[in-house]
């Protein structure tokens, strides 16, 4: 009996710690989710430069447009694996709208990510050519972003 007591105590403590850890993972946003959102914010910031030119709120500037498009290309090539760790979707994390279907259809998600990379590269080329090619590329880039948001993001 004397041997059993510390063991039981140890198990109980382990269970408590594990329970607390699980509770914490529900309460706190995992860094991966924050990293994904930061990446999306960087996309939006650079798209803002291109969008201002497309909508005529800023004069077309080939250098500024190419720099912004270049950033979007770089963002589309970040190694994404750790940022999309399993268990960080909307079903497990309050702050996430990433649908669990992402992890069930990873091949499709990857092909959509590659299509985004292609649209970003087309934008980089178009951004240097002139305003009209830039405007046309914006539609395809938007469609590439939307392809994932349509299928894999929980509606607000």
């Amino acid at each position: 009996m004397t041997m059993m007591k510390p063991l039981a105590l140890g198990l109980a403590t382990a269970a408590l710690v594990a329970g607390a850890a699980i509770a914490e993972s529900h309460a706190e946003t995992p860094p991966a989710v924050g990293a994904r959102k930061a990446q999306m914010q960087l996309y939006a910031f650079n798209l803002g430069t291109l969008g201002a030119m497309v909508q005529g709120n800023m004069d077309y500037d080939a250098d500024a447009a190419t720099a912004a498009a270049g950033n979007i290309v770089k963002l589309s090539t970040l190694a994404a694996g750790p940022m999309w760790a399993p268990g960080t979707g909307a079903d497990a994390v309050e702050a996430s709208r990433a649908l669990p279907a992402i992890w069930e259809n990873m091949d499709d998600v990857i092909s959509k990510a590659m299509a985004l990379n292609e649209a970003a590269m087309a934008m980089e080329t178009a951004a240097a050519e002139g305003l009209e090619p830039l405007q046309a590329a914006m539609k395809d880039l938007g469609a590439a972003c939307g392809a994932c948001h349509k299928e894999y993001r929980e509606p607000e």
């Binding site: 996309y43 469609a143 972003c145 939307g146």
Partner: peptide, 9 residues
């Protein structure tokens, strides 16, 4: 393009 003014889609 589906982009909102904040460049969400």
């Amino acid at each position: 393009s589906g982009f909102t003014p904040e460049f969400d889609s």
